[in-house]
Design a protein around this nucleic acid. Structure first.
Lengths: 223, 223
DNA sequence: CGGCTTTATCGTCAAGACGACGACAAAGGG
DNA sequence: CCCTTTGTCGTCGTCTTGACGATAAAGCCG
């Protein structure tokens, strides 16, 4: 028996917080199949390229940066009919970024935009990208509870209020500022004070923090 | 630009509890590369086969059964040099099974055996299977904390003590029987009483339970 | 049969975590 | 100088947790 050839692609779910809304980077496809429809950014893995490197390459092509962006593998989607052109297997990646500039459309895209996820999940997306997006959002929501991943949505230095805004945007629910402050500053290794304060815009200046060494939150946060 | 061809494989990490030890199903490779070395069971995905179906097919080939076994995707491993023969991408799956019979060696294997994971991680495994195995064990340990996955290691009906033995084997640590009983029976939707009792082997008969509808444990268990 | 062992199950208690919320601090704006 | 806004600390009652005592229900062994 031979080894049936597959095309291997990567697809990216890049999430960020824009204007208080959890948003995802979508492109408008320029070519068939699904020309004109919204899709996740992605592309083929090169012959001698690590799959993770392919994800970073696509990330840089669309956003212009890769530093300060969290990238983790989400899952692999391999239904036989997921691409009408050929047999493909797609490795999907979840990227979490602080608020970035407007995205740049890649060569195979007519446009690119940050779309609030509440709108994106209502769109008809190309291929099986709607399923991938749902899985990615579920993963992000879950991981905020028991990891320190929320800081990936923040700039290198941030306040407790900014961090709280991340949780509120991802979970879609208000949190008590005082209890949040107690938990977040009490969790060992989550936040490291920089000693500096914000230059204010109305209100008492807040301490600036940077992410601490802890990856897991103990005890976890509850929604 | 063309679409570089890849071989796509599935690899299985089948975990079970045997004699109180978390154990993994390993095969002894019959053919090169890595002939004679221990490896995870796996194989090529067929041309018109869903990747998940390929995992089920391999699972049945090695264990003889697929019912009552939990199967979830672990991750995909795609380093360019992971297989010396050709460019491959492997989708790894985590399977959790109750105590099964002895495994059957597949066509490309000289032997198959349940190996306690404490021994398996010390062996030199073929390909990048040592890394896959480590990731699988970490995933299983973590998921016992916040999901009802532990029941996947149990037969259809089981006692609280059997379930506790699962946690103790996977986490490698003793748990207080009384507190465990309180938590496990108090978690909504985790366990459903069958109303029946064990026919004893020395001691007070225990209630038999079956898995409840809950997938997530709220509150989670802590190690 | 009656004690002894084994296993299952219920209860108690103190320490800690949590949610709700009051109070104060430190800035800008009128 | 008050008012508003935002950040930070405290308090209180409730719930959860871990440690562990007590009791229940079986088999075993003389």
């Amino acid at each position: 028996m031979g080894y049936p050839p597959f095309a291997v692609t990567v697809d990216l779910v890049v999430l960020t917080i824009r204007a208080g809304h959890l948003s995802v980077l979508l492109i408008e496809r320029a070519e068939d199949p699904y020309a004109g429809q919204w899709a996740l950014p992605g592309g083929f893995v090169h012959v001698d390229e690590d799959v993770r490197d392919a994800a970073y390459r696509e990330l840089r092509e669309e956003t212009g940066v890769i530093t300060g962006i969290h990238l983790e593998q989400l899952a692999t989607y391999g239904a036989p009919d997921r691409d009408p052109r050929m047999r493909t297997v797609s490795v999907a990646w979840l990227a979490l970024a602080p608020d970035l500039h407007e995205p740049v459309a890649g060569s195979d895209a007519a446009g690119a935009a940050w779309v609030p996820v509440v709108d994106a999940v209502r769109h008809r997306l190309a291929f099986d990208h709607a399923e991938i997006l749902r899985d990615a959002i579920a993963r992000a929501r879950a991981k905020l509870e028991y990891t320190s991943l929320a800081t990936a949505f923040c700039p290198p230095e941030f306040t407790v209020a900014q961090l709280r805004a991340v949780y509120e945007a991802v979970w879609g629910q208000q949190l008590d500022a005082r209890n949040f402050h107690r938990k977040v500053t009490g969790a060992a290794g989550f936040l490291e004070p920089t000693g500096r304060l914000t230059n204010v815009d109305g209100g008492r200046p807040a301490q600036l923090f940077r992410p601490g060494p802890a990856l897991l939150l103990d005890p976890p946060f509850t929604r």
